[in-house]
Amino acid sequence: MTTAAVEFRSISKNYGELQALNNISFQVEKGSFFGLLGPNGAGKSTLINAMAGLITPTSGDILVNGFHTVKNYRGSRKSLGLVPQELISDPFFTIKELLDIQSGYFGLKGPEQKQWTSELLERLALSDKANSLTNTLSGGMKRRVLIAMALVHKPDVIVLDEPTAGVDVDLRKTLWDFTKELHAKGHTIILTTHYLEEAEALCEKVAILDKGQLKALEKTSDLLSRHNFRYIRVNFEGGEPYFISELQSRVDSLSKTEVVFKVEKEMPLNQILGWLVESKVHLKDITSRDATLEEVFLDITSEDK
C-alpha cells in the first residue's frame, strides 16, 4: 500500500525549445496539506495539469493514489479533484445542471449523489443561485462552482490552483474553512498560491519550483528554520542616520523612521546594538523575527538571477 497521494517520477515537459518541467521527482504524502510554490512561469500549473491528465508529460510518470495517470487514468482521475486557476464556465447550463452532469461523468447518480451535490451547494453558499446559468455569475461565484465541481466525486486528493486569486475576504474565509474541514477528514490538499502567508499558515510541506526545476522540498517549519537569516526592525528618530558599513551592507529596507536589517542567524544581538550605537542611531524601538516563507521563497528563487 503506497503512502504517497501523488508521486512524480522524473517528469519533464517540453514545448518545442521551452522546457516547462525539467526532471521533477517528489512525493506528496497522503493526508498532507502540501504547498506547490513558485513565481509565474515556474511550471506549477504545467505540473498540476500533468497530474490531472490535462496534458501528457514528455517523459516520466505520475501516480495519483497509486494509479498511473496515463495507463490507469480512470483510477487516477477518480482520485483527484482539480480546481483550475482560470474561471471557466459552461454558458449552456445552470450550476445544478453542471454538477449533475459532472457527477454523471464519474458514473455517479441517484439520491445519495443528489444529497451530496445539494450539500456542496449549501456549503459553498450557492443554493440561491443553483438554477442560474454559470455565465451570469460573478468571479467569486464562478470560483465556488469550480470548487463544487471538483468535489462531486469526493476525491482523495484535492488540488487548488491559485484558488484565492481575485476573491474577496468572505469567500477566502469560506474557502479556507471548507478546505481545512476536508483536510481534517483525511483528504490530501495540494495548494498553489501567490499569497505565501496562506501557504505558511496552512501547508505542512512545500515544494518550490523555479524555471521548471525543483528548488526546494521540505517541511515548511524546516524550511523556515533552515533559513540562515533573521530580520531586525529598528524604529528611530532624528532623521536618517549614516550607518557604518557593517550595517549598511545588511539593510533590507529603509524608510524615514524605520530600517530592517537582514542579519545572519548566529550573529549576537549585542553586536547589532553595538553597530547601531556606533552609527549614532536614536533608537525608539527594536524587534527581531525569523524569516517568513515569502522571504525564504524570494531567496531561493532569486539565486539564479
Binding site: 491528465g53 490535462l54 482521475r77 471557466i88 459552461d90 454558458p91 453542471l98 452532469i101 464519474f106 465541481m149
Partner: peptide, 17 residues
C-alpha cells in the same frame, strides 16, 4: 466552443475514455 471557453477540461478531468 468548449476549447475556447475552457470547459472541455470538465470532461477531460473525468474518467471518460
Amino acid at each position: 466552443q468548449a476549447k475556447m471557453h475552457g470547459n472541455l477540461s470538465f470532461v477531460l478531468l473525468s474518467p471518460i475514455s
